[in-house]
């Protein structure tokens, strides 16, 4: 179990976040869906983008505090287009 507020703080601490949605998928605070938009993602493939997010939450993913993380990463340009 890991509070969404703490996920928010960890991600903003390590990634230049311009938009962030965190959804608790099961109500048990260990299965999350995260949509994150950052200029840090510009010019890199989704694999590198996802690795960056996973790295920011590495301790919690390894300990099982976060059991599952469904992730979508977007650059600011992609985010504008998707609106």
């Amino acid at each position: 179990m890991f509070e969404p507020e703490k996920i928010d703080a960890l991600l903003r601490d390590q990634i230049n976040v311009s938009h962030l949605d965190i959804v608790d998928l099961t109500g048990t605070r260990d299965h999350y869906s995260v949509l994150i938009v950052s200029a840090d993602f510009d010019g890199s493939l989704p694999l590198a983008q996802h690795r960056k997010v996973n790295a920011a939450l590495a301790d919690q993913l390894a300990s099982g505090e976060i059991h599952a993380l469904q992730l979508k990463t977007l650059t600011p340009t992609e985010w504008e287009k998707s609106k």
């Binding site: 493939l45 989704p46 694999l47 996802h50 979508k72 990463t73």
Partner: peptide
């Protein structure tokens, strides 16, 4: 990479299911 499925294209690791979905949707 900690989870399965995993996809390789042209000998390179592309990612798992979320990444594949994302790259399918954005045309990559």
């Amino acid at each position: 990479w900690p989870t399965i499925p995993q996809v390789y294209v042209g000998g390179e690791f592309l990612g798992g299911s979320d990444i594949l979905t994302q790259m399918y949707e954005n045309g990559q």
